[in-house]
Amino acid sequence: MLPISYGTAIVVFCIGLYTILSKRNLFKTVIGLSLMEGGVLMLITSSGYVPGGVPALLPFAGGEPVNPLPHSFTLTAIVIGAADVALALAFIIKIHRRYGTVDIDKIRGLRG
């Protein structure tokens, strides 16, 4: 169970990285970033897994609760990630207005 979830998380992370490295569309870059973040969050959440655990709501009915700490991290990190994505999209709108394109390889006015 646990190896599968960790493995999935890492696979999602790698897909995100691959997306960033190989796609030229800015939106896809942002999607890649979200995927990477999702992978990391899955990793964190998986680490809170308890066999047969119940949600961490008092009173713990029916057994051991799962680890609540990763959940709180994940909540925090999700919000932060959402903020990042929102900002990135706002920048893409501005970039599209300036450059008329969302091709990442064409947005290189600053170099050298």
Partner: peptide, 27 residues
């Protein structure tokens, strides 16, 4: 705009690496 956007992509990737490091330390 371009500089801000590039900074954003770099910064986000950097933050992700930080988060991975912290996640592994926590795990």
């Amino acid at each position: 705009i371009e500089a801000g956007f590039k900074y954003l992509i770099f910064g986000t990737v950097g933050a992700l690496f930080l988060l991975i490091g912290i996640a592994y330390a926590f795990m």
